[in-house]
Design a protein around this nucleic acid. Sequence first.
DNA 1: GCGTTTTTGACAATCATTATCGTCTTCGCG
DNA 2: CGCGAAGACGATAATGATTGTCAAAAACGC
Lengths: 127, 127
Amino acid sequence: MIVRNTRQRSAVSALLAEVEGFHSAQDLHAMLRNRGERIGLTTVYRTLQGLADAGEIDVMRPPGGEHLYRRCSEGHHHHLVCRACGRTVEVAGPAVETWADRVAAQHGFTDVSHTLEIFGTCPTCAP
Amino acid sequence: MIVRNTRQRSAVSALLAEVEGFHSAQDLHAMLRNRGERIGLTTVYRTLQGLADAGEIDVMRPPGGEHLYRRCSEGHHHHLVCRACGRTVEVAGPAVETWADRVAAQHGFTDVSHTLEIFGTCPTCAP
DNA sequence: GCGTTTTTGACAATCATTATCGTCTTCGCG
DNA sequence: CGCGAAGACGATAATGATTGTCAAAAACGC
């Protein structure tokens, strides 16, 4: 299976490179259509899945049900998400990374990855 | 909104009390029907949602897409999940709990909760 | 160019979850 | 014990994101 360079794949990558924050597949698809790209929803899903498998983007599964994708640039980090307004703050936790790896190793697990999300109510949304 | 005790609610709680590990809503519904309970799928979903809101059970959202529920007995813990066979190991990380709360507080977030899952390949599934 | 192989994308299918809404229970109170 | 209203139930339909299908189009090596 040789990966080929196509206009659509580039478009998705380019879009992810310039937008901030998380976006759903449908979001990204709509944006691409708005800027005149001719690309199918199916292709957006496939491309995002590919990028996620390759570790080039982050995937988040919020309680809402939609998958959110985001360019995962500088290393590994986690997210602090506001329950009310959806605002996200990046947080880094080196201690958590090593802890997770160590715990997994203790149980003999290999190829370890992890997801961590913190939910709360942000200052501006507090009643 | 007064919560009432119904046969169905008790049945779900009872089932969760005796089964091990995670089960999907549809799983639990099937089990209840098998043991002769007359209960609708809708009710199972509603009951599970209620229990989850009340913090009495754990919810996990694996990449597969189904929500998995589990009685969350002894305090807060996280899970180490095998990618291949789905086996789960409970892990506790007091340090992570406090870290998450602290980070959230630093950003002014309140009502903080978090989810953490570690994925890997368990020893028996390693090629 | 040419042929092969991958990718695309419109459309249909899937499937867990949620909404609807009429009927049935529960429970406080007399 | 019986009543009445507030909830709860549950069959069914609806929702909606994601995935499968497959013929047509594009990309790459030569």
